[in-house]
Design a binder for these strands. Structure first.
Lengths: 241, 241
DNA sequence: CGCGGTTGTTTCGTTTCGATACCAAGCATA
DNA sequence: TATGCTTGGTATCGAAACGAAACAACCGCG
């Protein structure tokens, strides 16, 4: 794993959330916090995560439900934080698809150790991000062949994408018509946080536009949202293999 | 690299059976479930198992009897699940030939730990050169015959592989669609660590591509992931030997 | 001993991508 | 409209990654 693993910490107590996030970042991980299931879903939609630390007791949709939902959808691995008690242990571990769990109150070192253990197990560093492996996806006038990273236009033109092009494009394709900030895009494509005055995404967008826009100076597919980021302004449909 | 251990889970409660199986599979094991002694015998006859998780309380032939029978026949090691507090059962179980036991309700992590402990004790890993000795494997347009290290293409073309080609290819075939770093590949093929400016893997990939890619300058099967490594971008299916 | 084939190493040219810089376009305010 | 500030677009450059040719070392084999 060349990239720094990104952990999503979901807990309704601010102190725990912040403390855990800080501890993880101190120990070489990236951490993002969410207060509840709703906020979690938003973060999940916007970014790439390698593991979720999930509190079982939450207002709104509770941890068990969230866990079942995510695990059924094949999301990232989950480490559950459970209240101390005999019965929950069994239910949590067995009936839900958690990868591990930890009874509260816990030792942060142990949390870190378990997180690393799960990351070690589940490190598969996918080649093609998300669900696109082997598929073909149409948007605008283009068809993307995810396997050989090639674009074919309606009029027969062919563009080959570099790795960076491809990652950026797939990030958009998985979230069409959604405004993605530069930070989110950087996370999705390079898995890192921006440093000051980071224009990397601007550059990559510019390069991608040169390949896919009919008139790159008047972009229609990847539109700029001033102060917000970029957005794929086209519908996306999946084609068979 | 050894094979993934295969666990047979025998319990008459469907929820427990399924939950345990899922949990084991999430943690890097293979799991198969059986409802009772009869089904267990059928699975045992059909496949190879490294360990049996056996519930003591079952309709039909009960766990103690099964345990006695299997262990006398020199079957795989057994981990018994006992109801809480039935001390006699545990003792009897161990006397009868179980390798370990766990009282219900149990902590799934503890179950996993005990399973791994037993597997470690009873590890009889033979030095199998990979997992595809004697098998035939299909990927892309090719079929690899592992015995004589020959590739046959869908259109009838035949390529013979050198040992280095073969090792590299099998490394990929065992982890399709996963990005493998140069270090990992070097470890898998040559069993050594890279020294500075080591381009060995690049070369071997280049050579292998010349043999298996339709257009080596536009690789489709073994794709490079800049900054990451290489990846077999094709599905792999095993054919009968 | 020579020979052909295989494999590791070096090297060079190309591609790719991030950083920087500069310019243009938006936006507010007067 | 003029002015100044902010934000986005892209040309350019250099560093790093990559592909492959060329070379050298090695290995078995007759």
């Amino acid at each position: 794993m060349t990239e720094i693993p990104h952990i999503l910490v979901v807990d309704d107590h601010r102190e725990i959330r912040d403390a855990v996030s800080r501890y993880l970042e101190k120990n070489g991980l990236r951490a993002t916090a969410a207060r509840d299931a709703v906020e979690m879903d938003a973060k999940l939609a916007a970014g790439r995560f390698d593991l979720i630390v999930l509190d079982i007791m939450m207002p709104g949709e509770d941890g068990l439900s969230v866990c079942r939902r995510l695990s059924a959808a094949g999301g990232p691995p989950i480490l559950m934080l459970t209240a101390l008690g005999e019965e929950t242990d069994r239910i949590v571990g067995l009936e839900i698809g958690a990868d591990d769990y930890l009874p509260k109150p816990f030792n942060p070192r142990e949390l870190l150790a378990r997180i690393k253990a799960i990351l070690r197990r589940t490190d598969t560093t996918e080649a093609t991000p998300g669900e696109l492996a082997g598929k073909r996806v149409a948007f605008g006038d283009w068809v993307l062949d995810a396997d050989n990273r090639r674009l074919t236009s309606a009029d027969g033109a062919v563009e080959t994408l570099t790795t960076a092009d491809f990652r950026l494009l797939t990030a958009f394709l998985q979230r069409p018509r959604v405004v993605l900030s530069r930070d989110e895009l950087l996370d999705l494509t390079a898995g890192r946080s921006p440093h000051l005055f980071d224009r990397t995404i601007d550059n990559q967008v510019s390069r991608l536009r040169r390949k896919i826009e009919a008139d790159p100076s008047r972009p229609k597919l990847i539109t700029t949202v001033r102060g917000g980021g970029y957005c794929l302004s086209a519908d996306v449909r999946e084609l068979a293999g």
